[in-house]
Design a protein around this nucleic acid. Structure first.
Length: 558
RNA sequence: CGGGGCGUAGCGCAGCCCGGUUAGCGCACCUGCCUUGGGAGCAGGGGGUCGGUGGUUCAAAUCCACUCGCCCCGACCA
């Protein structure tokens, strides 16, 4: 392609409120433009990148026997009502009515529609297994679109769905996807982790996310470099660093006006890790007392999974329900449900005395109070792996893909049954698997850029090579450039030639910004000696080579 | 949905507090000259319902009310 006839609107400046690196560079380098909040236009360069990613997706999907199909974006409400998600999903679903007043919605995912098709067409175990996939538009009315292309209201998704006769079959389809995903992200040049994740609204038993580390990511992942444990913080289990407990006798301490763990800890000169923090939560089934170690925080999502949506109690409610002033609550002697974090199951602690201005030292869990033991604290840096005891670390990540074991969550309500070899009717066992191509592109930029611009992994770059004729007024430069351009093209290499009548500086800056991996620089000076330059975008190293030898270098590099 | 910020030329911004010439700057764009290895220089030029509506005032980009949009933090997130 010729730069002069391709629409590549590069920008010197970008609005100051654009934060994410990938967002800024995609705008500056002319890959995307924003239409409205969470709605993006992919310009020629951006679309080329997506297409290259999509062909990798297709190759790897076909390789595990997945078959590409295409589903409508517009869905009738009834199918979503049958699985209960019409009501379970809130404002995130775009809803509308057709001219006859029939409820419709725009597809945010396709479990329902895929299962509908399977229910209609799959009869026998002989039809199984099936894996169907599509690369198609999804619409979600996000509460807060952000970070450019990373969280949008309309986006492309590779979504696949597996239908198996039994759990073993699902296990196989799930594993095939996990392996394909590893190959995909590797081929796309990403650094990534496969982590355990919360199935959430998708339902089902087990799920994993594929996470590309980047400060622009919205997710936090707990990683153990020692044993390989990796999980989203939403469900990661960690153990607090070892603590040696004192054999304190049970005694009340006068702590006038000291309410928070921080205050009492400073007052007594004892570390917060020897404290039990008591939080009164108002849950649907009534008040619950949550106990957390003094140096840790309650993980609201983990807690919500146990007791449902809750809020913390007001000061007056604390007094009314527990008969204690907030700040002096202790775990002892209450007549309500107590859920305590597993980390405080052993030890000797300090907590409120259930009496104003007093705390108690020497509290022994299991002796002085009983509780339901659950993992409810937030994992944090410095915690230890619950499997092997090594210190874990936490990394910020972009979720580029996910895989879910759905089981029969959709097949039962949508009556997707088949007959097994003994003639018995059984529900299809399903899995669903997603990848966001635009997130791969953004993550690739997040992980591969420098102060001058994007550095594309070769596999997903919009072009393999860019030719930079520095002086378009020099006949020899043009002759050599044009000759190279056509012969490179003939070899099937995607090449862009910057044939604009611009100064050398402009071409260099734009080339670095756009981030095509290999640059061929054609300047008058070198040309006099029959030389041209081949330069690597990542290392910025350039080599002078004889014009006729260029292909030896290209075949190595491309 | 809660908190904060911002809407002025294609893009990036100043002006607004403290109302009053013809609304300004940089980039981009057009013409000419010049220049061609890291976003050149000189000269000339075009381009604005100051997000919208209503109000206050002799007078509104500027003050007030409402409204729409966008960004950031949080909640939420198949």
């Amino acid at each position: 392609m010729r730069f002069s006839s391709m629409f590549i609107p590069t920008l010197r400046e970008v609005p100051s409120d654009v934060e994410a690196v990938s967002h800024r560079l995609m705008l500056r380098a002319g890959y995307v433009r924003q239409l409205a909040a969470g709605l993006y236009i992919f310009l020629p360069l951006g679309w080329r990148v997506l297409n290259r990613i999509n062909s990798i997706l297709k190759e790897e999907m076909e390789a595990i026997g997945a078959q590409e199909i295409s589903m409508p974006v517009l869905h009738p409400a009834e199918i979503w009502q049958q699985t209960g998600r019409w009501d379970a999903i809130g404002d995130e679903m775009f809803r509308l009515k057709d001219r006859t007043g029939r409820d419709m919605c725009l597809g945010m995912t396709h479990e329902e529609i895929m299962t509908w098709l399977a229910a209609k067409e799959i009869r026998s175990y002989r039809d199984l297994p099936q894996i169907w996939y599509q690369i198609q538009t999804k619409l979600r009315d996000e509460a807060r679109p952000k970070s450019g292309v990373l969280r949008t209201r309309e986006f492309l998704m590779k979504d696949s769905y597996s239908f198996d006769a039994d759990e073993d079959g699902l296990e196989r389809s799930y594993r095939l996807h996990a392996e394909a995903y590893h190959r995909i992200f590797k081929r796309c040049g990403l650094r990534f982790y496969q982590v355990e994740s919360d199935p959430g609204m998708m339902g089902g038993a087990k799920a994993h996310e594929f996470m590309a580390p980047s400060p622009a990511g919205e997710d936090e992942v707990v990683l153990c470099d020692n044993c390989g444990y990796a999980a989203n913080v939403e469900l990661a289990i960690t153990v607090s660093p070892d603590v040696t407990f004192e054999d304190w006798p049970y005694e009340e301490l006068h702590t006038p006006g000291k309410r928070t763990v921080q205050e009492v800890s400073e007052f007594l000169g004892i570390s917060p890790r020897y404290f039990i923090k008591s939080l009164l939560l108002m849950a649907p089934k009534g008040p619950v007392l949550a106990l957390i170690r003094g140096d840790q925080e309650l993980h609201e999502k983990k807690m919500q999974k146990i007791i449902g949506p809750f809020r913390t109690a007001e000061k007056e409610e604390v007094k009314k329900i527990l008969g204690v002033e907030a700040g002096f609550i202790g775990p002892m002697g209450h007549n309500l449900e107590i859920i305590a974090d597993l980390n405080i199951k052993d030890g000797v602690y300090i907590s409120g005395a259930n009496r104003e201005d007093f705390h108690v030292k020497g509290i022994r869990p299991g002796i002085h109070f009983e509780a339901r033991w659950q993992d409810i604290h937030m994992a944090k840096e410095g915690d230890r792996c619950f499997r092997c005891g090594a210190v874990i670390r936490i990394e910020q990540c972009i979720e580029v893909g996910n895989i879910f074991k759905l089981g029969t969550k959709y097949s039962v309500p949508l009556k997707a049954f088949y007959l097994d070899s003994s003639g018995m009717e059984r529900p299809l066992i399903m899995g669903s698997y997603g990848i966001g191509p635009a997130r791969i592109a953004a993550a690739a930029i997040e992980q591969n850029h420098d102060s001058d611009g994007i550095i594309w992994p070769r596999s997903i770059a919009p072009f393999d090579v860019e030719i930079l004729p520095l002086n378009m007024k020099d006949a020899k430069t043009i002759e050599v450039s044009e000759h190279l351009y056509s012969s490179i093209k003939e070899k099937g290499i995607d090449v862009l030639i910057d044939d604009r009548d611009e100064r050398a500086g402009v071409k260099f800056k734009d080339a670095d910004l756009i981030g095509i991996p290999t640059h061929i620089i054609i300047g008058e000076r070198n040309l006099k000696e029959g030389l041209i330059e081949i330069k690597d975008r990542r290392t910025k190293k350039a080599a002078k080579v004889r014009i006729e030898e260029i292909f030896q270098y290209l075949t190595v590099q491309v």
